[in-house]
Amino acid sequence: MSRVVGEEIPEVVAATFDGADLAGKLGLGFVLVTVDPDGLVRPCMVSAGELLVLDSRTIRLGLWSGSSTSRNLAAGSPVLFCHVAAGAVYYLRGRARTLRADPAAGLDCFELRVERVETDSHEGLPVTSGITFTVVDPDPPAVLAMWERQLDVIRSAE
């Protein structure tokens, strides 16, 4: 059963999305959930190259332009972000506002204000890992270079 732990982004989440050591975060996947206009939930996989923690309550996102998740965020959908890692599961809830970004970047940018943080743990049944992926094509250096460009767009969005 989850329990509320506050309104601030936990340190493990902030460290994952601080924009540093992207090579060490390659392969880590996370789930961002919004709600479609018809009321159905829409999960979206995200990585360390698409999110950037600004402060204890603010996360910026850069998602592919025109995606269903982007449309939901622009329409004011509530957001549930799930961070799963060894030993802890965190659920961050809030709403996002649209930011202006360079249209040539192909990203829709948003700023999520965290309103509530929950954690989920079960005595004797610890979480051992989160979602992971592998990079096949393009190669890892190309993905890391893309992430750096995306994070620059996210940082400069207004």
Results as ranks from 00 to 15, higher is better:
Leu80Lys: 04
Leu32Pro: 02
Arg3Asn: 08
Leu80Gly: 06
Leu54Thr: 08
Arg60Thr: 08
Gly66Ala: 09
Thr134Pro: 00
Gly27Arg: 06
Ser56Glu: 15
Leu125Asp: 13
Thr134Asp: 07
Arg42Tyr: 07
Gly24Ile: 01
Leu40Asn: 09
Ser70Val: 05
Ala85Arg: 13
Arg95His: 15
Leu92Gln: 04
Val143Trp: 06
Arg97Phe: 06
Ile9Lys: 01
Pro78Trp: 07
Thr98Ser: 13
Val135Met: 02
Ala14Thr: 04
Leu22Ser: 04
Arg155Asn: 04
Arg100Met: 09
His83Tyr: 15
Ala14Asp: 05
Val13Arg: 01
Gly62Gln: 04
Gly27Gln: 07
Tyr91Ala: 11
Val117Tyr: 01
Thr132Cys: 06
Met45Gln: 08
Ser56Gly: 11
Ser65Phe: 06
Asp152Glu: 15
Ala86Val: 03
Val33Leu: 13
Cys82Asp: 04
Glu11Ala: 12
Ala20Leu: 12
Asp36Cys: 11
Arg113Phe: 02
Asp108Phe: 01
Phe110Arg: 06
Arg113Ala: 11
Gly94Thr: 07
Trp64Arg: 13
Gly39Trp: 03
Thr16Pro: 00
Ile59Leu: 15
Phe30Asn: 01
Pro138His: 09
Val84Asp: 04
Val31Asn: 06
Gly24Ala: 13
Leu144Gln: 02
Leu80Thr: 14
Gly62Met: 03
Phe110Asp: 06
Val41Thr: 14
Ala14Asn: 03
Pro140Lys: 08
Asp18Arg: 08
Gly87Arg: 00
Gly76Asn: 11
Pro140Thr: 06
Ala74Trp: 09
Ile154Tyr: 01
Asp137Ser: 12
Thr98Arg: 15
Ala20Gly: 06
Gly87His: 02
Val12Tyr: 00
Arg97Ala: 09
Arg113Leu: 12
Asp18Glu: 03
Val4Glu: 15
Thr58Ser: 14
Leu112Arg: 02
Leu73Thr: 02
Leu28Asn: 10
Thr69His: 10
Leu61Met: 15
Gly27Pro: 06
Val4Gly: 00
Glu7Cys: 10
Val114Ala: 04
Thr34Gly: 01
Ser77Val: 11
Glu111Arg: 05
Leu52Gln: 03
Gly106Tyr: 03
Leu80Pro: 00
Gly29Gln: 12
Pro126Tyr: 07
Asn72Asp: 15
Lys25Asp: 03
Met1Asp: 09
Glu7Lys: 15
Leu92Gly: 04
Phe30Ile: 00
Pro10Gly: 07
Leu125Thr: 08
Val79Phe: 12
Leu144Cys: 04
Thr134Gln: 12
Ala105Cys: 11
Thr58Glu: 10
Ala48Asn: 08
Cys109Gly: 04
Pro10Tyr: 07
Phe110Tyr: 14
His122Gln: 13
Glu148Cys: 02
Gly62Ser: 05
Gly6Asn: 07
Ala23Phe: 07
Leu73Val: 10
Ala96Trp: 03
Leu107Gln: 02
Ser47Val: 08
Ala142Pro: 01
Val53His: 02
Asp152Ala: 15
Gly130Met: 10
Leu151Arg: 01
Glu123Ala: 15
Leu63Phe: 12
Val53Pro: 01
Met146Ile: 02
Val41Pro: 13
Pro103Glu: 10
Glu118Val: 09
Leu99Gln: 05
Gln150His: 12
Thr69Gln: 03
Glu118His: 11
His122Ile: 12
Val46Asn: 08
Gly27Tyr: 09
Gly66Cys: 09
Tyr90Asp: 03
